[in-house]
Computed example of a mutant assay.
Amino acid sequence: MAEVEISFDVSRIDFDKTSDVIKASYWGEGRTDDIHRRAFANSLCVGAFVDDEQVGFARVVSDFACFAYVADVIVWPERRGLGIGKKLIRALLDHPELATVTGFSLRTSDAHSLYEQFGFVTSTDGMYMRLARQPAAREQT
């Protein structure tokens, strides 16, 4: 396989392909392109590329000081198992704008072993709380 290039240049992100791949995932079901546009615009996004073709994506929602939430880490199905997800996570954790962040969090139902390699642990400390709710209807503008 050719070298994997990691880039934070959002102009290189293939929005349509990224949105489609996420919508096909177990966590992206029910999302729309509009939701992804707003989510990506309010996140630090990173893409993985092989020969200038995008093959993966991830993003972080953060205050860029103390807290960061890792989201939408995804590798295109035909490129999985090649270490691309690891490169995306490493790039996010090493990003200079996140250097002072001490609290990273995420949710996963199937990739625990990936994140454990970077020091993530399943929260059982009795402090982590979560509110899950249905999204409010939004008027189209």
Rank of each mutant, 00 (worst) to 15 (best):
D34S: 13
R59E: 02
V75D: 06
F49Q: 05
R37Q: 14
D72F: 02
D63H: 03
D72V: 06
D34R: 12
C66Q: 00
V60M: 10
C45E: 04
C45I: 10
T32E: 08
L44E: 03
W76P: 12
A65E: 00
W76V: 13
Q54F: 02
A48K: 03
A68L: 12
A68F: 13
D51Y: 02
V75T: 13
F64E: 05
C66W: 04
R59A: 04
G85D: 04
G83W: 01
H36S: 11
L44Y: 03
V50W: 11
S43V: 00
A71M: 08
D34T: 12
G56I: 10
V61N: 02
V75L: 05
N42G: 14
I74Q: 11
V60F: 12
A65M: 00
P77E: 08
E53L: 03
V75W: 05
V70C: 06
Y69C: 09
F40M: 15
K87L: 12
C66D: 07
I74K: 06
A41K: 10
A39G: 14
R37S: 10
E78L: 07
L44Q: 03
F57R: 01
A68H: 09
G83D: 01
V50C: 14
A58T: 10
E53M: 01
W76C: 15
E53H: 07
F64W: 01
V50S: 14
W76G: 12
F57A: 02
V73W: 04
F64G: 01
I84K: 02
V55S: 06
V61C: 07
C66K: 00
K87H: 06
I84W: 02
E78I: 03
R80H: 07
A71N: 10
G85N: 05
D52N: 10
E78W: 02
F40C: 10
V46F: 09
V75Y: 04
A71V: 03
D51K: 04
D63T: 07
A41H: 10
T32H: 12
